[in-house]
Amino acid sequence: MVTVPVPGLVADGLAVRFGDTPAVAGVSLAVAPGEVVALVGPSGCGKSTLLRVLAGLELPDAGTVAWDGVDLTRSRPHERGFGLMFQDHALFPHRTVGENVAFGPRMRGAAVAARRARVAEVLELVGLSGFEDRSVDTLSGGEAQRVALARSLAPAPRLLMLDEPLGSLDRTLRDRLAGDLRRVLGALGIAAIHVTHDQEEAYAVADRLVVMRAGRVERDGPAAEVWRDPRTEFVARFLGHDDVLDAATARALGLGDGTGPVVVREAAIGLLAVDRAADPDAAPGPVLHGTVAAVRFRGATSAVALELLGPAGEPVGLTVHAADPPPVGARVRVRLDPHHVSPLDG
């Protein structure tokens, strides 16, 4: 019998302990060639350590790493053909931009002319044509980030890992570079794992989301699906869902499957101002009454905190966003559309 190896990266049961602290505790992850995965999670959840294990910079205490079915668990970083873009870039300060980018091809024994052509090619890809002779410490933050990207792309890795590559940049630059990153990765069609703690950056770069928590993968799936159905309260809150109702409240309101908590996505919340006569029976879902407890200005919309009571008098706190928020103290009615409510694991 011939087993067809799974193409691309397959990591299975990886575990790393630092002393008594497990940093990675049994992570399995597969990334197909051409697939871009965003690995997200709060600081300290083991994302960076996982990347280091995949890159071969750290040996796992347990588990395996394979590419196209070939076991790489014990092979050294330079033998894997993986690229890693470091947090804060780790550019070589004693080399020019061109020499930094040429480093990988040089290690593979590329001839001078080929190196020069490759450097020009990847610098153009990241929009820094002609930067070859610039000194690394004259670069702006965005430029350094692009040079680091070019450097990790130059040896044509089969898997590119990016460890919070945009972490130190300001919001505007981040949004722009995240878009560029998606374009470049898409154009090259290589597998990539993009580590970030910022969910918006994750959506901007990748289609698939892997959420880590305390050394484990808590959720793994297409970004839109994970967002819609986060499955656990941790993932729901990490992805920015403000409204999680506990099991008892959910049961009282008839939401979910009656056994566990639910996440109420904002689309579920129909804000019905009291003075407007709307028929609560026209649509499905429970109706709650209450007042506006607080309003926080957030730019385009404001976050409106509501203190509500359910049909049987159970207290429910919800947050909605509105461009034109009601004043604090205003009485409100709210209907929850069960189509936009997902059950969470108890």
Partner: peptide, 11 residues
């Protein structure tokens, strides 16, 4: 990390 960067770049 620069040594590591060199390593993942094939050194």
């Amino acid at each position: 990390r620069q040594r590591e960067a060199a390593a993942v770049l094939g050194a």
